[in-house]
Design a binder for these strands. Structure first.
Lengths: 329, 329
DNA sequence: GGTAGAGGCACAACCGTTTGCGTTACGGTG
DNA sequence: CACCGTAACGCAAACGGTTGTGCCTCTACC
C-alpha cells in the first residue's frame, strides 16, 4: 500500500537509516546521496509516517485544542489563529468541543493526551484541582483562567470593563446591571470584580444578575429581570448575551440605546453586524490563540523545566451605537 | 515516563499480548484474568498509545476536517457537529483552515493524509482533477461539491433559492440582483443556476454581480453596484454578504427592506441576530456534518469497495424582516 | 609512511501495540 | 485409552520510523 522508508531505501540503493537521516538530519549525509534519495522519495511520493515517528521520538507533533462551544462566535477566531500558528510550527491540531460540560471536558483531555504533545484549554470549566492532576500527563496552556503553576494567556478584561463602567457613568447612568456568565467562568468573575470596584468608585448602583447561559438565549431570558431592576445601563458577559438582551428588551417595548444602554464583551462578529452596532470590549482572540500555541510549544520543548509564563493581553472598550446618554429621569 | 502495556503486563503477571487482548478482544481472555488486568491498568493509569496501535492496525482513528475559513459563521456548527459525531464513534478530528487558498488546501491534505483515516472536505476550492488524484491516498467525503465517484453530502440550495426568487416575485419585485460567491464555489454555481432558471420562469430581470468575497466586506463592496443596477430585490451568496450589503446600502441612504429587499443564504448566527432579521435560506449544517462523518467512516470501513453515496439535504426559505413588498414604482 | 581524525554510511536495537501461531491443560467423545 | 477440539495464554514477528554504535575509507599531518 503506502510507500515507506524501506521502499525509498531500496530504490535508491542505500540503507533505511540514510533515508531517515536525509530528512531528519540532512547534514549527516553526503550532498550527492541526499539529492538522489530526495529525488527517489519525490518520485515515489513518499511521506513520512508521523505515527511511526512519534513512537520513537516521543513527539507526535499534534496539539489538542479544547473549547466549551465551537459555535460560540468568540472561539472561531481563536481556533483559526491557533491552528494557523501551529501549522507554521509543523504541528496539527485536534479541536474538541465540551458543550460546556466539565465531565466531558475531563474525558476529552484524557482521551487526547496520549496523542498530543500538549493541550490548549480555552476558558475551561474544570476545577483547578482536576487540572493540576491532569497536568502530570501532558503539558497545558490555559486561556482565560488562572491555574497555579501553569502557563497562561489572559485577556485582561478588567481593563475594558473599567472603561465600560466609566463610559456608562460618563453618559449619566446611575443604576446599572451586570449580566454575569456561567458559574465556572474565570472571565465572568473578573468582569464582576472590576465592574463592582469601578462602580463603587464612581458611586454607581450595580445589580448583578446571573449566572446566565453564555448565549443569545441567556440574554433573552434575562430581559425580564433587567427590566424589573429599573436600570438604564447593562454590561453583559458577552456579545451574544447582549444581543439576546436587546432582543428581549425590545419585546418588552424598551429601546436600545434609547431606554437602556447595553455593552457586550468580546467583540465577536454578530455584535459588529447587528443594529444598533454593539458597544463592546474587544478581546484579542487571535493574538491569544497564537500566543497560546507558542507558549505551549515552548512548554513542550522545555519539558519539566517549562517556564510558567503568564501573558496578559490588553482589552479595550469600543464605543458604537448601543450606548447613549441616559434619558433624564 | 508514561505507563505502557508492558508495565501493566509485569504488574499483573501476564504477557503483554494478554493485556492487549483484554482491551481489544476481551472474549479471548479468562474473566478472572481480565478483571485483574483491568484493575492493574486502572491503578497504574494506563492508556493505550494510539500512535503505536495505528502502526500495526493501519487505523489511526483520526479524521481530518478541512474548511475554507473557520471564522466564517457558516462552518462552526458543521465543525461542532462533525466533531461530536466523530467522538461518538471513537474518532478525533483535526481541523484545518485553508484561508480560501487552493494551494494551501492541497498541501494540508497531503500533510494530513498519513495521519488520518479519512478527510472531510467542506466546500473545497480545489479542482476536481486534483481531488481525484488525491483520493488515491486517503478516503474523502466532500460537502457541497460534486466530484465524480466520491461520496458527497450536498445541501440542496436550489430548492431554497427557487423559493426565494418566488418570494421576491410574489412581493412584486421585477428587477432583482444576485451577488454571487467566490469563483470555485459549487454552491455559488447552484444558486446562480437555480435563480436564473426560476427568474426566467417568472419573467424577472436578473442581474448577476460577482464574484464577491464570501464576507461582510464582499457585500459592502458590492453595494455600489447594486445601487447602480436599480434593482429592488437582492439574493446574496451568504448571510455575511447580505449583512455587508445592507450596511453598504444604508450608507448610500437606501433602507432595507424599505427600498431594497435582501435575502441571504445559510441562516448563520449573525443574520438571526441582526436588525432587520435576515430573510434567508436555512442550510442544515449540523446534519451535514454528522452525515459526512458517517459516510466517511463507512468509506473507511469498506475500503476500495466504498459506496459513493450522494446525500442530498433539504434547504428552505425562512422569511423574516429583510424582505417586503416592492414599493410601487 | 604511519597514524589520527573525520566523514559517510550500514547495522541493529528500540518505540508500544497487535496478531498469527504454538503450546499447554483439560474435558468430551468413540 | 487414544484422540481431538477448545479455551487461555505465551512467543515473537511485524508496523515504519529513529538513533547509538561501529566499520570503512579518505585526507591531512608530522
Amino acid at each position: 500500500m503506502a510507500v515507506t522508508i524501506r521502499d525509498v531505501a531500496r530504490a535508491s540503493g542505500v540503507h533505511v537509516s540514510t533515508v531517515s537521516r536525509t530528512f531528519s538530519a540532512p547534514h549527516l549525509v553526503n550532498a550527492e546521496t541526499r539529492n538522489r534519495v530526495l529525488a527517489v522519495a519525490e518520485g515515489l511520493g513518499y511521506r513520512p509516517n508521523r505515527a511511526a515517528r512519534a513512537l520513537t521520538t516521543g513527539r507526535t507533533h499534534n496539539l489538542g485544542l479544547i473549547v466549551a462551544d465551537i459555535a460560540n462566535p468568540f472561539f472561531p477566531p481563536l481556533i483559526k489563529a491557533a491552528q494557523a500558528q501551529a501549522r507554521e510550527r509543523d504541528y496539527h491540531v485536534f479541536v474538541a468541543d465540551t458543550d460546556e460540560d466539565p465531565v466531558l471536558e475531563q474525558e476529552l483531555i484524557e482521551m487526547l493526551c496520549k496523542q498530543v504533545d500538549g493541550v490548549l484549554l480555552c476558558s475551561p470549566r474544570l476545577s483547578n484541582r482536576v487540572i493540576e492532576r491532569l497536568r502530570a500527563q501532558v503539558p497545558f496552556v490555559v486561556v482565560n483562567r488562572r491555574v497555579k503553576g501553569l502557563a497562561t494567556v489572559l485577556m485582561d478584561v478588567g481593563q475594558g470593563v473599567r472603561a465600560a463602567v466609566g463610559h456608562l457613568a460618563g453618559l449619566g447612568h446611575r443604576r446599572v446591571a451586570l449580566l454575569s456568565g456561567p458559574a465556572g467562568s474565570w472571565t465572568s468573575g473578573e468582569i464582576r470584580e472590576s465592574a463592582a470596584e469601578r462602580a463603587a468608585d464612581l458611586g454607581l448602583e450595580l445589580t448583578v444578575l446571573g449566572p446566565n447561559a453564555p448565549t443569545e438565549q441567556g440574554g433573552l431570558a434575562a430581559a425580564g429581570a433587567v427590566a424589573a431592576a429599573g436600570v438604564t445601563g447593562v454590561l453583559c458577559y458577552n456579545d451574544l448575551v447582549a444581543l439576546g438582551l436587546i432582543e428581549g428588551l425590545r419585546e418588552r417595548g424598551l429601546d436600545v440605546p434609547g431606554d437602556v444602554s447595553v455593552i457586550g464583551v468580546d467583540d465577536s462578529l454578530p455584535g459588529r453586524l447587528s443594529r444598533p452596532k454593539l458597544t463592546t470590549i474587544t478581546m484579542p482572540t487571535a493574538a491569544a490563540g497564537r500566543m497560546a500555541v507558542d507558549l505551549l510549544l515552548a512548554s513542550v520543548a522545555a519539558g519539566e523545566a517549562a517556564p510558567r509564563t503568564t501573558a496578559r493581553l490588553e482589552t479595550s472598550l469600543v464605543i458604537r451605537e448601543s450606548t447613549q446618554r441616559a434619558s433624564s429621569p
